[in-house]
Write a protein that binds this DNA or RNA. Structure first.
Length: 244
DNA sequence: TGGAATGTTGGAAC
DNA sequence: CGTTCCAACATTCC
């Protein structure tokens, strides 16, 4: 489910509820979700992997983590973390997710220039942030939500393959051209991901993620658990150059 | 069949 | 006390 592009699709599915009043709230989320009742949803937006439901004076932040899911106007067999009821029996259900309520306006708390899918995305700012972390591995950089908000493990793997950069390359050692390509492709692949996911054909377009053989040179793909979070990483030793 | 995983956090352990 | 590690998450996939 949950890399940035999947959140954009979720937002699209929820858009019909913008401007609608929440008439009932339930769920086992620990946050004070009752206060949502009676308020109209002012705005629905995303920041990376965060879904933001804006109400007057506060907003709800939903993160699907690894296993989260949602349903519109239907129920799953498990209890929802958060259920929002509307007129005429309409509802939104969120399952197995993180729900937080934050005070004020989302605009005051989020920097949309970090969101790889945002109209406000700034490649320049990403470059500045990367320059501030010269020792960081590129496989970690592409998972850093302050630099590439919305990028996840699939995007990481595919972007590194497309740019032919080895995951253990060091940010500060990347030649300017490769650094620019990395930043550009993080956004570019995210939009490909979005459209492929929309068409239910995402998986068939994976070039390296979960693959056994490199599509370029046909040598076996290497699979290792790399980076600070030891995340699953697929790469081609032959086609992806290591800058270290 | 069940181990691993598109993710993050909170708290234990050191 | 800073850093690291790991479990947990009313799950789903292959």
């Amino acid at each position: 489910m949950p890399e940035g592009p999947s959140l954009v699709l979720m937002k699209e599915a929820l858009l019909p509820f913008e401007g609608k009043k929440v008439t009932a709230v339930s769920g086992y989320a620990k946050a004070d979700i009752k206060r949502i009742a009676g308020h109209k949803i002012k705005d629905i937006r995303t920041w990376g992997k965060h879904l933001l439901l804006e109400f007057p004076g506060f907003f709800v932040r939903i993160h699907l983590l690894m296993f989260g899911s949602y349903r519109v106007n239907e129920e799953k067999d498990v209890n929802p973390m958060l259920r929002l009821g509307f007129a005429r029996n309409q509802c939104i259900n969120f399952y197995t997710c993180s729900v937080k309520i934050l005070e004020g306006e989302a605009n005051d708390l989020y920097d949309w220039s970090a969101d790889v899918l945002s109209d406000d995305w700034s490649a320049e700012k990403a470059k500045t942030k990367l320059a501030a972390h010269p020792d960081m591995l590129v496989c970690d950089a592409l998972l850093d939500q302050d630099i590439f908000s919305g990028s996840g493990n699939i995007i990481k793997n595919e972007v590194l393959f497309r740019t032919r950069i080895h995951p253990l390359s060091v940010v500060g050692k990347l030649p300017a051209r490769q650094l620019s390509a990395l930043i550009k492709e993080a956004r570019n692949y995210s939009f490909d991901f979005l459209e492929w996911k929309r068409q239910y054909v995402l998986k068939q377009h994976w070039q390296i993620y979960t693959k056994k053989e490199c599509p370029r040179c046909h040598l076996p793909v290497t699979k290792e658990y790399l980076g600070a979070g030891k995340r699953r990483t697929f790469f081609c030793e032959h086609c992806q150059q290591r800058y270290a």
